[in-house]
């Protein structure tokens, strides 16, 4: 599979946008403009961007609490994402959901989830609807390594397998469930072997290789439409703490440094330069573009109105 220059451009821009989004949001958190908590996916950009860029609008995704890369990958409106982090009325959830509940049904995002593994059962339903209507689209469910230890993982993979649902389970293995390393929470090293218990196919990929992730998602989509679900494990690393209150006493600075050297953004840049896909100037233009986008998003968010208490009962029930 040879990716076009346009695809490379898209992947790189979205990864840089994600990096910039996270770094900016972290700064806004320190400034007290983002409150509560926030979970950043810095270092994991290639996962959500690689997978979601390979999807169409009508393909659904279920996001995680650490899913800004997934949202940007699925072409969500960055302004509305930022506005939601700032709790503004113009945000995706009208300021009522925050970072953990960002969703955009219009681009196929059925929402992020504050419950680890919470999206997995929902994904089976979305995929069932696609199958029921003979659609040629698929559902992609993101979750972390930690979620594979929960009951929802087991029940969802099993049901999806029994019903041959067009569903791609994507596990972002960043090695830590909050503070607990996977070697203390499971007795296997390769999470993808879990799929065999459900009679479904799986692959384990370098989660920092955006090109490979994109290519494998294209293949996976075709596969699950014909054969039912599969599991893709993307092995990567979480550069920042679990959330904004994490002192990170459970890992060494060397470990973090080592993974930072495997930066997915730099890696893609190097790949493009080496293969003469884009020039350094073109790449720099994209980087500036991303910085500008995030700056504009912050401006949009900061200039947006606060939600009003008069509207608090809106959307508890549908008409």
């Amino acid at each position: 599979m040879k990716l076009s220059k346009e695809i490379h451009k898209e992947l790189y821009l979205k990864m840089v946008q994600t990096r910039e989004f996270e770094e900016t949001a972290a700064r806004l958190f320190v400034e007290g403009k983002v409150h509560g908590t926030a979970h950043f996916c810095t270092g994991e950009e290639a996962t959500g961007v690689g997978v979601c860029s390979a999807l169409e609008v009508k393909d659904y995704i279920l996001q995680t609490h650490r899913g800004h890369n997934q949202g940007i990958g699925k072409n969500m409106d960055i302004n509305k994402m930022m506005a939601e982090l700032l709790g503004k009325a113009t945000g995706y959830c009208k300021g009522k959901g925050g970072c953990m509940h960002i969703a955009d049904f219009s681009v196929g995002s059925l929402g992020a989830n504050g419950i680890v593994g919470g999206g997995m059962p929902i994904a089976t339903g979305a995929a069932l609807k696609q199958q029921y209507n003979n659609e040629k689209n698929v559902t992609v469910c993101f979750f972390g390594d930690g979620a594979t230890n929960g009951g929802a993982f087991h029940e969802s993979l099993n049901l999806a397998s029994v019903w041959d649902l067009p569903l791609i389970f994507v596990c972002t293995n960043n090695l830590y469930g909050m503070s607990t390393h996977i070697n203390r929470s499971m007795n296997i090293e390769d999470i993808s072997i879990r799929a065999s218990g459900y009679g479904i196919k799986s692959i384990s990929l370098d989660g920092n290789d955006v090109v490979k992730i994109y290519e494998e998602t294209i293949k996976a989509k075709e596969y699950v439409l014909k054969n039912g679900p599969m599991l893709i494990v993307l092995n990567t690393y979480r550069w920042m703490g679990h959330s904004k209150s994490d002192p990170q006493i459970y890992r060494t600075k060397d470990e973090v440094k080592e993974w930072k050297e495997k930066c997915p953004v730099k890696r893609h840049k190097k790949y493009m330069l080496k293969n003469k896909i884009m020039s350094a100037v073109e790449i720099e233009t994209l980087e500036k573009h991303a910085v500008r986008d995030i700056k504009a998003a912050v401006e949009f968010a900061e200039n947006s109105p606060e939600p009003q208490i008069e509207n608090i009962f809106d959307d508890v029930y549908a008409d």
Partner: peptide
Amino acid sequence: PISELVITGCAVGASMTG
């Protein structure tokens, strides 16, 4: 299957999407 969590979640996902 005997899986109340996913049965309920499956209904949520199917109902959210039409």
